[in-house]
Structure formats: C-alpha cells, structure tokens
Amino acid sequence: MHIPDGYLSPQTYVPLYLVSFVFWSTALKKMKKNLSIKHIPYLAMASAFSFLIMMFNIPIPGGTTGHAVGSGIIAILLGPWTAVIAVSVSLIIQAIVFGDGGITAIGANCFNMAVVMPFISYWVFNIVRGRSLDAKRLSISAFLSGYIGLTLAALITGVEFGIQPLIATGVDGRALYSPYPMSVALPAMVFEHMLFFGVIEGIVTFLLFKYFAKHEYDMIYALSKREANK
C-alpha cells in the first residue's frame, strides 16, 4: 500500500498533498477543541501505537502470518479524526526515517491510509453495528470495517496508479510514471486486497476489537461516543 517515489506524477502528488493538508488542519482543529493541551502527547502516543501495530505479525487461518495497517482499529478505538493525525504521523516517520513509502508520495499515502481508510472503517463499523451491542454483530462489524476500509483504500490507490498513463505521457505516448493502465492497476490492487490483505486487516481489527470489548470496553471511542449520543 505504501506508494514509493517515482510512481506518481506531480499532477497527482501535489493535489493529494493539498487534500491531505486540509484533513490534517481540520483534524488538528477538532483535536484542539475537544482535548485542549492534552492533545499533543495523546496524538504522539496514538501515532506511536499506529506504528507499533504494524510490528506484530499475527498468525492467520491457512498457516501464514501477516500484519495490518491498523487505521481501521485506530479509528474505532480513538475516533476517525484522531486516526487521521496518528496514522499520518506514523506514515511520515516511516517515509522519512525508514524509507518505507516515498517522500513525494507522502500526501497520497496519507490520503489513502490515514484519511480514506479510517473514515470508511469507522462508517462501516457504525452502519453494520447499528444500535446493537450483540457481541456477534459487533465482531462482524469490526471485521468488515477493517476489510472494507483497506479494500477501498486499495481501490483509491489503484485509481491513482491507473490514471498515470492517461495524465502523464511523453511525446511518443509512453507512460512517464506508473506504467499500468486502469484496466490492470485497479483489478490488481482491488483483488489482492479483497482476497488476501483485506482479510488479514479484517482479522486483526476483529481480534483487537474483541479483546478491547472484553477487557477495556470504555476505551472504545466508537462505542462510547454512540452511547453518549443516545
């Protein structure tokens, strides 16, 4: 999911930087309003946690192991706006310090994994869950939130790759950046995430949610927020 440098044209990465910037500013404003000065260490800890989730390899059915992006579970635990900042900071550190994801692609990566994914996951969780507190329905909601969140983020990434041969070509018609047309980039990104990575994300989101629902129910933002609104 981490887009490296060189795959996106300036026509794509510049607008995505701007879109991400709008979300960062809005998220910081919202945080400041709700959490006062406590938001600084809180966001830093949330970012560190977002980074740490990726360090846990989890055995999944079928005998293999995988790790999650974690944006879905962070949105459920801390709220989507906190997830925007937490996952973005984690992605920025990954790109600058560990070379994971490109520097020109920071805006695109943040938009895909720190904006699209947390919001979709959070909405899916709330829509599937409804007002129910039934353990089975909550577990299904958690799985689907991770699964659908990641798959849709992959779809957006596929579109970003797929438009490159249309918007950035040389005089001879040759693609200057990502060479894969939409007909290849979109199915490749969507199917691999639908069949494999999305399932891992769903399982990790479900496992973590199940653990928190059992032991730390009050810490789940998506549940406490809805309860407070009732």
């Binding site: 740490l52 846990f56 390899n57 496992l207 730390e216 810490m219």
Partner: peptide, 16 residues
Amino acid sequence: GRRWAAGRIAFMFKKT
C-alpha cells in the same frame, strides 16, 4: 498465537 498477539497489542495501547 492470535490471542497472544491481540492481547499484546491491546497491552501496548493501554501502556501508550
């Protein structure tokens, strides 16, 4: 293995 990993991630969250 799954239970252990989920428990440890939750522990990390609590710790953070």
